[in-house]
Design a binder for these strands. Structure first.
Length: 832
DNA sequence: GCAAGGTC
């Protein structure tokens, strides 16, 4: 039997399909798909199925000095037990094996991991095949000409793993211990995340240090035969045109001249044509940027693309490549769309061109083809809105890469008004080219009439505007990802996760991301004592060491030993500064949680966390001062810039994904609740009969509102109410529950007829249950449907499910994944 | 429980 191993299940399935000419069947082993035909078995891994770690005696952070990690052993442990077991079983039955993991460095390492697992079971010949896209030609060609694993290339990857673990773990533990942060809120640093954070922090420093300058700009409306157009004042300095006037009196003088001139004489008219080239094929970074342009975060863009890929509609979304492979026949792919109700016209138009020549980028890699549609077209109704919009983006981007360039005509008019120069720049799209099929880029025109030299134009209006130079702008998520790519930080598969990690660690907030005080302190501490970990140069050096390993000039041992020695020297320096660093980090963390003065003792009010895990506002003077204010129970509180003038407290925002909201000043919220009387609306359904409990609309000090029993806390019956808007109690009553209907009036919007609060809550719970599965991390509509077919339609169904049985039934969902979801379902059960 | 890199 021949065993074929791929990097992921999807690739295994498609390769089996190609090599078996469609005859392969699927069996499940330990919840893992195995494809079989003839004497072949093909199994997909899930990326790395083993990972590096320290031996167990290094596990406890308190028992081990971080410096001890510098010389610690690094061992490999299985991380995907089921897959490792299946692979070994298959290896035991095989008489030869073929490694068909991805054609890049990490793929070579994953292949070597599989090689070693197979070797533990059987001494059989193991060969390696390489292909860049899973097409019939490439796959068959690769299997006809097998090669050997490149152990040097894999060793380069292993060196990276070891160096990253040593530096990351040792320094993360050092900082966390120094600041006494050992729980969930440890303080992490790493070769990629820390230079990324420094990039954000450095920009923030520039913004903070920025000193604005005043300047003035002048404009005039020029008229010609009833049409007017705007022109801007400029002057020449060192041979270049300057629009900004830096002294006020100079600006005023020019303004007076313009205002009194009456007419301007056209000095020159210049026409220029500019070619606007169509975009290059999508790599991951450019795709994320474009998806950002239609409103998706980097994370969301990748998870939607992942869904579309798994469903077979687009090619693999993690790629560095910007050159379509020879195997891609653009005309054939266009033909797949010529019957589609939405794409037919564009596809037909492009296909009818004499010569279809796609654009190509600078990056030609072996990993995967650029992202493009496969030609299998989804039904719009089967996709979520985001999924469809992304699909259309990918289709149209492919269209654009085979479309013609656009042509713009630029018209520049320069006129003179009593010695003051004015200019107007017009632009007109004369050949729409690719814009016809790709509506994601601006084609706005600026009309300037075709005046002639010497012509006199009336000045209808003159304006002077006082402005200030602006600090550099914070980079948005996609801009940051582009920046990481250009600096060689991270990979196509990790860059978006790196940003997410910085959010999760409390280092950055909002979008565009801005650093917290903690982030500033971590970067400062690193710059002072372990500069290498925040320096992008560490990656550059590692890359060159890895190249040396590939070229056989260095070995893994030499590279990791050198790195350990360097890390050891950093620890020599760190040793004496531990307390100083810890204090600085702690102060900064406190500053991130500080709201303002305590009304009782004047110390600082801080956001704190109770032993049970809920957040509240408490005084830094505790235990001498026991002043507290409650916070909403939903979400993670964060301090925002806005502040309450009455209490001198910063406002609080609650981060809870899509239900994020601004809580405001916690003192105001508490005061409001104290001043609001409960409004009784009927009997409590739980205890109204035997204890005379009544239901009332209550405003809580935490800012939330509910319908609850007047006997609280003896009776805990409650129904949630919206946070915003005035609640009106109507005369109409619910026949089933004998309660009045409610209406929510929020200024401006149409009132919301909430109806009977019990009926409303019941309906809300049903909707929640229906969408709960899709809300799970990484579950798209397709997977949700498959789960529904297996009887899993809501979170609660998942709680009682047999993970192994479900994994065996539902293709593409691993048992591990299901167990993660079950854990999530149990958390939400306890929240209910 | 630490990193970064795969994948889901």
């Amino acid at each position: 039997m021949e065993l074929i191993v791929t990097e992921k299940d999807n690739a295994a399935r498609r390769i089996a399909e190609i090599l078996s000419d469609g005859s392969a069947s699927t069996e499940r082993r330990n919840g893992v798909n195995v494809y079989r035909w003839g004497d072949k078995r093909c199994v997909g891994l899930s990326g790395h199925v083993v990972g590096v770690d320290f031996p167990p005696e290094y596990e406890d952070w308190r028992d081990v000095q971080p410096v001890e990690l510098v010389e610690a052993d690094v061992v490999k442990k299985p991380t995907q037990e089921n897959i490792v077991r299946t692979l070994k079983q298959l290896a035991g039955e095989a008489d030869r094996a073929t490694i068909a993991t991805d054609y890049d460095r990490e793929g070579e390492l994953i292949g070597k991991e599989a090689y070693e697992l197979i070797r533990e079971e059987a001494d059989i010949p193991i060969q390696r095949v390489r292909f860049s896209s899973i097409t019939e030609n490439e796959v068959k060609e690769a299997f006809a000409t097998p090669d050997d694993l490149d152990f040097d290339l894999a060793a380069a990857g292993e060196a990276r793993q070891i160096v990253d673990l040593l530096w990351g773990a040792a320094l993360t533990r050092f900082l966390s211990l120094s600041a006494n942060q050992l729980g969930d809120d440890f303080i992490s640093v790493g070769r990629v995340q820390s230079p990324t954070l420094k990039l954000i922090v450095d920009r923030e420093r520039e913004i903070e240090a920025f000193d604005p300058d005043d300047y003035w700009e002048l404009f005039a409306d020029l008229a010609r035969e009833g049409t007017t157009f705007e022109a801007q004042y400029f002057y020449r300095e060192d041979g270049t045109e300057q629009e900004r006037v830096w002294d006020e009196s100079g600006a005023e003088t020019a303004f007076e001249t313009l205002r009194n001139a009456g007419t301007a004489v056209v000095e020159s008219v210049r026409r220029r044509r500019r070619t606007d080239e169509p975009p290059e094929p999508f790599n991951t970074t450019q795709y994320i940027s474009a998806a950002n342009g239609i409103g998706l975060s980097a994370q969301r863009a990748m998870s939607v693309a992942e869904e579309l890929y798994t469903a077979g509609y687009i090619t693999y979304p993690r790629t560095d490549n910007t050159v379509y492979p020879d195997d891609l026949d653009p005309e054939a792919l266009l033909s797949a769309f010529t019957d589609h109700y939405l794409f037919a016209d564009d596809a037909e138009m492009l296909r009818s061109a004499d010569d279809i020549e796609p654009t190509a980028g600078d990056e030609e890699t072996t990993d995967h083809p650029p992202i493009h549609p496969t030609g299998e077209i989804p039904n719009k109704d089967d996709l979520s809105d985001d999924e469809w919009e992304v699909y259309e983006l990918v289709v149209r981007h492919f269209f654009a890469t085979v479309a013609d360039a656009a042509e713009w005509e630029h018209l520049k008019v320069v006129a003179d008004a009593d010695g003051c120069s004015l200019k107007a720049n017009g632009k007109r799209l004369v050949e729409p080219g690719y814009h016809e099929v790709y509506p994601y880029r601006s084609t706005s025109e600026n009309h300037v009439p075709a005046v002639e030299e010497g012509e006199q134009l009336a000045i209808e209006d003159a304006r002077i505007e006082e402005k200030q130079t602006q600090p550099p702008r914070r980079r948005g998520q996609s801009r940051l990802i582009e920046e990481l790519e250009s600096r060689g930080l991270g990979t196509k598969s990790t860059r978006h996760n790196t940003l997410q990690k910085l959010y999760d660690r409390g280092y950055i907030e909002s979008d565009p991301p801005r650093p917290t005080k903690l982030a500033m302190a971590v970067v400062e501490a690193a710059e002072q004592f372990a500069d290498r970990i925040v320096d992008e140069e560490m990656t550059a050096q590692l890359e060159s060491d890895m190249q040396a390993i590939v070229d056989g000039e260095k070995d893994l041992e030499a590279v990791t030993e050198e790195s350990r020695a360097l890390l050891g020297r950093i620890f020599d320096e760190l040793h004496d500064s531990r307390e100083e660093i810890g204090e600085h980090l702690q102060e900064s963390m406190k500053a991130d949680r500080m709201l303002g003065p305590c009304p009782e003792c004047g110390e600082d009010l801080l956001i704190r966390r109770s032993r049970k895990g809920s957040y509240f506002v408490g005084c830094d003077g505790f235990p001498d001062c026991r002043y507290t204010l409650p916070l909403p129970s939903q979400g993670e509180p964060t301090v925002i810039d806005e502040a309450c003038t009455e209490h001198d407290l910063n406002h609080v925002k609650m981060l809870a994904g899509r239900s994020t909201f601004v809580h405001g000043c916690p003192q105001c919220k508490a005061d409001e609740a104290d001043e609001t009387d409960d409004r009784i609306i009927g009997d409590c359904p739980d205890c109204g009969d035997n204890a005379d409990g009544e239901l009332a609309i209550k405003q809580l000090r935490s800012g939330s509102r509910l319908v609850g029993c007047t006997r609280y806390p003896e009776c805990e019956y409650s129904l949630p109410l919206p946070r915003r808007g005035d609640i009106e109690v109507l005369d109409e009553r619910c026949a089933d529950h004998d309660l009045p209907h409610l209406r929510v009036v929020d200024n401006g919007d149409d009132p919301w007829e909430l109806g009977c609060p019990i009926c409303n809550y019941t309906e809300y719970r049903e909707q929640q249950a229906a969408s709960a599965i899709e809300d799970l991390d990484g579950v798209g509509q397709k997977t949700a449907e498959k789960l529904a077919d297996a009887g899993i339609e809501s979170l609660s169904d998942l709680r009682g499910a047999d993970a192994e049985a479900v994994a065996n039934e539902v293709q593409g969902v691993s048992e591990d994944r299901l167990r993660e979801w079950q854990a999530e379902a149990n958390v939400s059960a306890s929240a209910d």
